[in-house]
Design a protein around this nucleic acid. Sequence first.
DNA 1: GATGAATGAGCATTCATTCAT
DNA 2: CATGAATGAATGCTCATTCAT
Lengths: 193, 193, 193, 193
Amino acid sequence: MGRVEENKLLKQTNLMDTAFQLFTSQGLTKTSISDIVERAGVAKGTFYLYFKDKYDLHEKLVVHKAEQIFQHALEHSGYEALVSREDKLLAIMDDILFQLQNNPILLRFLGKNISWTIFHKVFEKTEAGYSGFFDELRNAAPSERKRMEIELFTVIELVGAASYSVILTGEPVGLEEYLPYLHDSIRAIMASF
Amino acid sequence: MGRVEENKLLKQTNLMDTAFQLFTSQGLTKTSISDIVERAGVAKGTFYLYFKDKYDLHEKLVVHKAEQIFQHALEHSGYEALVSREDKLLAIMDDILFQLQNNPILLRFLGKNISWTIFHKVFEKTEAGYSGFFDELRNAAPSERKRMEIELFTVIELVGAASYSVILTGEPVGLEEYLPYLHDSIRAIMASF
Amino acid sequence: MGRVEENKLLKQTNLMDTAFQLFTSQGLTKTSISDIVERAGVAKGTFYLYFKDKYDLHEKLVVHKAEQIFQHALEHSGYEALVSREDKLLAIMDDILFQLQNNPILLRFLGKNISWTIFHKVFEKTEAGYSGFFDELRNAAPSERKRMEIELFTVIELVGAASYSVILTGEPVGLEEYLPYLHDSIRAIMASF
Amino acid sequence: MGRVEENKLLKQTNLMDTAFQLFTSQGLTKTSISDIVERAGVAKGTFYLYFKDKYDLHEKLVVHKAEQIFQHALEHSGYEALVSREDKLLAIMDDILFQLQNNPILLRFLGKNISWTIFHKVFEKTEAGYSGFFDELRNAAPSERKRMEIELFTVIELVGAASYSVILTGEPVGLEEYLPYLHDSIRAIMASF
DNA sequence: GATGAATGAGCATTCATTCAT
DNA sequence: CATGAATGAATGCTCATTCAT
């Protein structure tokens, strides 16, 4: 990468990081482009060299952050050492829940975007051989694969929606208390498939 | 209700209906108070007699619409004729899914607000005796009741999140195809409790 | 007219007068809406209550000023006392030339808008009976009227274009020197019709 | 011309051609230097190597295009074969009108710049001997020459202004219908001189 | 209560211009 | 000569909010 290219990437990353801070502390609506560039220490016009508008940046940020979460789960959940598909998926989901619990600001930012849609994007970006879990999906026969996708979808949507409420509002109970029920529910769902 | 009171309610309802149209067609951010009052045919100042600001109106609208959905499900799902708790809850959820499928605009507006939080508000507003389903919850012993709430929470969050994706984007499959899996999943979840 | 209506008209007139000053001294492009409202002593938003943008105001101003010129010529040229159509039209044109010569700023502002198009607008706004000159046109037989319109068009376009150059640049000669030639030309044109 | 010089001229011509396209399709005000260089396929900085700013380019373009028109008329109107000064000038004016009628975009661009001012520039750029029509003017005695210039001025201004309205708006009649009247008027004007 | 003209802070966006490469 | 990333002043425009009628 040339020095110019490098500098460009730095500027963009800088803007995204700054925007994340502001979005999470003041909300998207109350954050102006002026706020972002001022804090990022670049000129206003520079913003428009990298993003169409505030919402463009926001969208890229959501995808980026959600991807990081899934990525991290695949790399640190230790699912590979486990045998059954149930155990593997549970391990991955637990890692995600753990990340979110330790970073409620990120959870609030992502809102309910911990969803199949984002997961799918990550899945498609990932090359074969990268993750055993993904490879299993990829190598399955078409009909079987569809079934597995639906199963995965169901589990992810449940985890995403439930974690939001449980972690951020403690309703109807805290994560600690809810986790066993969630585990049982996920196992039950997977058993039903 | 006096004629004056009636008139006030009319104005407010008018504003809310108009706002719903605009919010669903242009989005919350791109809808201004000017837009709303202009289309509603009232003066700008009038808006402030009924709502604090745009967000106040929006919030009231979300709660109102979500309540209507739950209300409708309690009144038209025919759950009372069924025997098992599983069957009752499934009937209620199916009614909600049916409403949302027939009104994707409403679904998009509510976003992922078909959730335990809203359900809880409806539950608390409802007097004893109104719904057998709620009464069962109310009359349960504390520990048992908590367990039932968690169960209900799990089911509602799953249905809310999954229906959003399935109905609005058709991902990973359409509602038609997904429904059997969802039914099985819900039954499995409830069995696990 | 109510007091509110009166006030509105005042605001609009004020904005137009101020804009005219700025347009003629700095040009349209270099005049900003901020400049106008600042000097007019009203808030920025007020501008948009009366005009769509700078160009909207400019257009209205051009029409308004050109109308005034034609109006003045009809009322002060004394054409009514004259007998022949040639003499009448010459008197009117002379009055216009006289106005423009005494107000080169206005002439520069109008540019080459002293034209048939504007004249026609004034003509159509004017009620029957208002001006003997217009009535003659109105009462002529269709074919005759068309011929008269073309004649009028030719004279006006010549006067408008020539006066611009002669008065503002003195090229190829000053108005004083040019006037006799112009008179002869107009008479010659009219004779040819 | 060296290869470097040639290349420079190419770049400049390229920029002017591109600008003409944009000026005629979007107008001068709404065309930015960014627009021009982007479409011309050169870097922003390059623009400033050839033009001071947008208006500089525009002015050069107007003069250039108007010159082409007069040039073309002198070369293709066949005026040289004609005998009387009236016929010669009419032939030249007819050629100009023909060009404008076939290129209304150009006419709109030139606006009312088909005028004595531009004609004069062309005249002065032209060397003696180039055009018989110009030579006649050049060789006339001073007082006679002034008279001829005024005559020429009158005819050109009339043609420029009238053609603009007649060709672009069809008001008060189309060119076809207007032409005979215009011819008569020009002959009448010239006879009066 | 209802109105809607007026406000002016606040914001997004553009764009001519520079200058290090 | 040519480039194009970066700048930031300038500007148009919006819109929530107020208040005299």
